[in-house]
Design a protein around this nucleic acid. Structure first.
Lengths: 133, 133
DNA sequence: TATGACGTTTACGTTAACGTAAAGTTATAA
DNA sequence: TTATAACTTTACGTTAACGTAAACGTCATA
């Protein structure tokens, strides 16, 4: 029974406008089937859209996101192609790792700061007596 | 000897143009001292710039990055302010956590895929005999 | 003293990523 | 059968985040 979706189904689910989804198609990132002139999205299309939006959340441009997503559709025929693909994957992996590190550092900084704030708040709440001699 | 930097010092170090740094100032995110009309950046300014650029790498708009950075300069006078600050920090923390999860998921997907590619490559290299019976 | 190298302000230009409006098509409900 | 809801294409508009160019200041050095 392989599911399918209308454009507004996906728009609702991912909280974007139909315009946005059509734009991604115009950029060559989606190719839904058609029933007459209406677009019909498959589960695979839905996954692709999810990948696009995750890429955007991580700060990739659409062009960068497309580069990454296209790697998952790359030809795997001969060994040479596979080696090239693995190289490119390693390259993109580096970008992703940087983002993970950035997020972790930002979280660590923020948690430190919040802890200091909570400390200060505790001081204020116990009456401010006797602290910080 | 508290260090200071020219605009092109920072531009070089962070691989952006002076225009970009001036733009961040116009957006109220930096306030370097002046020596005559020349901008003089402190270590603190440099940290702020680093925070801005990390925010950008993580996909925050400048406005979002500013919101976050401004929290680190928020007033801590009374308990009410501290509680509000802690609320806002928790809010931003959520955004950061989502980005970390996104990055981790993307990395996991990519690593799985790369592993399958390496498997396929190994098959091809050992002559393709006897595999996948 | 003149010539770079570096800085400044002002202002218009550019691009990605959509928003928005107009005008038409198609299926379903009243 | 008419309305209305959801879709379509086409096309111009908008905004963030800078790029780029012009015209000028100022200091060291050849």
């Amino acid at each position: 029974m392989t599911q399918s979706f209308s454009i507004s189904d996906l728009a609702r689910e991912f909280d974007v406008t139909p315009r946005t989804i059509r734009y991604y198609e115009a950029e060559g990132m989606l190719e839904p089937l058609r029933q007459g002139q209406r677009r019909i999205y498959s589960l695979r299309d839905r996954v692709t859209l999810a990948l696009i939006l995750r890429g955007k959340r991580l700060g990739f441009s659409l062009a960068e996101a497309k580069e990454i997503i296209d790697l998952y559709d790359a030809p795997q025929g001969e060994a040479g192609q596979l080696r090239l693909l693995l190289d490119k994957l390693a390259d993109k992996r580096g970008l992703l790792e940087e983002k993970r590190r950035d997020a972790e550092n930002a979280l660590a900084n923020m948690d430190d700061y919040a802890a200091r704030c909570r400390g200060r708040l505790a001081e204020l709440e116990n009456g401010g007596a006797g602290q910080r001699t």
